[in-house]
Amino acid sequence: MPSGVHIHDVRGRLFEAAERVLLRDGPDALTSRAVTDEAHCAKGVLHRHFADFDAFLAELVQDRVRGVEGRTATLCAAAGTRDVVDNLADALDDLFDPVTVAVVALVTFRDGLRARLRAAGLTGIPLAAQGATMIAAYLAAEQAAGRLAGDADIDTLAPALVGAGHLLFADRSAAAPQADALRRMVTAVVAGALPAPRA
């Protein structure tokens, strides 16, 4: 695209382009040139809106983080409905969509990006950490509703579920895990925290 042509929603367009490159080619192929080529715009467009490429990537990650944080209220509203295991399995399946898995790999791959994210207050592994916070909030809501044992260790269960979930989804070259495999994992992690069925 020639320079001087106005592009609507530049940030959104560049983020979508970066996600496509990540999904198709992996984190080592993600460069400012690859993003702007994918977005069909001049390279200077990215640098007019972001201080440098790591600043762009940090904003991309933070945009995904806000999406996870926004889904927390929806998941917590599901407490007391359906089956706890089904709710958790669906939440993990939603959390570890292909873009999130690719972004987690990207964060691991780029030291400069991790430094930017730490400076922005994101500790741990971004997206996985927010996922654990989301799952913990849901488990607390189920505990308050009496569908999770009162002595259940939510602070251990939530990261265990997210960590095991990530392992199931982490191979970007393979198909997503089958629903029954995800449900079996969730059942194994939370079985001891679910109240015994009534006779």
Results as ranks from 00 to 15, higher is better:
156 T>R: 15
154 I>A: 06
112 G>K: 13
166 H>S: 04
139 L>H: 04
122 L>R: 15
160 A>G: 07
119 A>D: 14
161 L>V: 02
144 A>R: 14
123 T>P: 02
123 T>G: 15
164 A>L: 10
159 P>D: 07
155 D>T: 08
161 L>I: 02
121 G>L: 10
151 D>R: 15
164 A>H: 10
130 Q>E: 15
125 I>Q: 15
158 A>Q: 12
122 L>V: 02
132 A>D: 10
157 L>F: 04
168 L>T: 00
132 A>M: 11
122 L>A: 14
128 A>R: 11
152 A>R: 11
153 D>V: 08
142 E>C: 11
119 A>I: 02
120 A>G: 14
131 G>H: 00
151 D>W: 10
137 A>Y: 05
132 A>S: 14
127 L>D: 03
162 V>D: 04
164 A>S: 13
128 A>E: 12
112 G>T: 08
148 L>C: 08
140 A>D: 15
155 D>R: 12
139 L>Q: 11
116 R>Y: 04
168 L>Q: 11
169 F>M: 03
122 L>D: 12
115 A>W: 05
116 R>G: 06
128 A>H: 01
151 D>P: 06
122 L>G: 05
126 P>R: 05
157 L>W: 03
154 I>C: 12
135 I>P: 03
158 A>M: 08
128 A>S: 11
160 A>W: 01
165 G>H: 01
169 F>G: 01
145 A>G: 13
165 G>K: 01
170 A>F: 02
166 H>D: 04
152 A>Q: 12
129 A>H: 10
115 A>S: 10
129 A>Q: 14
116 R>F: 07
131 G>K: 00
130 Q>D: 14
155 D>H: 11
159 P>L: 04
143 Q>T: 09
159 P>Y: 02
149 A>K: 14
114 R>P: 03
120 A>I: 02
124 G>W: 00
145 A>L: 05
130 Q>H: 09
156 T>M: 11
132 A>L: 09
156 T>G: 09
131 G>E: 00
140 A>C: 13
150 G>H: 14
111 D>K: 12
114 R>K: 13
142 E>N: 11
155 D>P: 04
170 A>H: 08
112 G>N: 08
133 T>Y: 08
155 D>M: 06
112 G>F: 09
124 G>M: 02
168 L>N: 06
169 F>W: 14
124 G>E: 00
145 A>T: 03
151 D>C: 05
151 D>G: 10
138 Y>C: 01
143 Q>C: 06
129 A>F: 07
114 R>N: 04
140 A>T: 05
170 A>P: 00
113 L>K: 09
156 T>P: 02
166 H>K: 06
119 A>W: 04
155 D>L: 13
149 A>F: 03
139 L>D: 07
150 G>F: 10
146 G>L: 01
128 A>C: 14
170 A>D: 13
128 A>P: 00
121 G>K: 14
158 A>V: 02
117 L>G: 10
168 L>Y: 01
142 E>Y: 06
123 T>R: 15
141 A>S: 15
136 A>R: 15
130 Q>M: 07
138 Y>M: 07
169 F>E: 01
159 P>G: 08
111 D>H: 11
146 G>F: 07
153 D>K: 15
126 P>V: 01
166 H>V: 00
161 L>E: 12
115 A>V: 08
129 A>E: 13
160 A>L: 11
153 D>W: 10
170 A>Q: 12
151 D>F: 08
